[in-house]
Amino acid sequence: MKPLFTLLLFALLFSCTEKTKKAETIAKHIKLEKGDLKLPNYEALLDLNLVLEAPKPGEWLYDHYEKGQSYGDYIKSNPVAPFEDIKTIYIQPIGEFTDWEQKIINWNTEYIELFFNLKTIQLPPISEKSIPKSKQRIYYGNEQLDATYIINTMLPKKKPKDGIVIMGLTAKDLYPKPSWNFVFGLASYKKRTGVSSIARYSEEELNETNYSKCLMRLIKTSTHEISHMFTIKHCTYAICLMNGSNNLNESDSRPNGLCSECLSKLSWNLNFDNVSRLNKLIAFMETHHLSDDASFLSKQREVMLIQK
Rank of each mutant, 00 (worst) to 15 (best):
T148G: 04
Y149K: 07
Y149R: 02
N152D: 14
M154L: 15
K157G: 00
K158A: 07
K159Q: 11
K161H: 08
K161C: 02
D162M: 14
D162H: 13
D162A: 06
G163N: 12
I164A: 00
V165K: 07
M167I: 09
L169T: 09
L169V: 15
T170P: 04
T170V: 14
A171K: 15
K172Q: 13
D173C: 02
P178K: 04
P178F: 03
P178E: 09
W180G: 03
W180Y: 09
F182H: 03
F182K: 10
F182V: 01
V183N: 05
F184M: 06
G185H: 01
G185N: 03
G185C: 05
L186C: 00
A187E: 09
A187L: 13
S188E: 02
S188D: 13
S188Y: 03
S188P: 09
Y189L: 15
Y189M: 10
K190Y: 15
K191E: 14
R192G: 04
R192I: 06
V195L: 07
V195R: 01
S196R: 00
S196A: 15
S196F: 01
S197L: 02
Y201A: 03
E204D: 12
L206E: 00
L206Y: 03
E208W: 05
T209A: 13
N210R: 14
Y211G: 09
S212K: 06
K213H: 10
C214M: 07
L215E: 06
M216D: 06
M216R: 03
R217V: 02
L218W: 02
S222V: 08
S222C: 05
I226N: 11
S227I: 08
H228F: 07
M229D: 06
F230A: 10
F230T: 12
F230S: 14
T231W: 15
K233S: 11
K233V: 04
C235G: 12
C235I: 11
T236A: 08
T236Y: 05
A238S: 12
I239V: 14
I239Q: 05
C240N: 06
L241Q: 15
L241M: 13
M242L: 08
M242Q: 09
G244I: 07
S245K: 04
N247A: 01
N247V: 03
E250C: 02
S251A: 09
S251H: 10
S251P: 05
S251K: 09
D252C: 01
S253F: 11
R254F: 08
P255L: 08
C259K: 03
S260Y: 04
S260I: 04
S260M: 09
E261K: 14
C262W: 01
S264N: 12
K265A: 01
K265E: 12
L266Y: 05
L266E: 03
L266T: 05
L266N: 04
N271C: 13
F272K: 04
V275Y: 08
S276R: 15
R277N: 15
L278H: 08
N279H: 10
N279W: 07
K280F: 12
L281G: 11
L281M: 15
A283N: 14
F284R: 01
E286H: 11
T287E: 14
H288A: 02
H288T: 08
L290D: 01
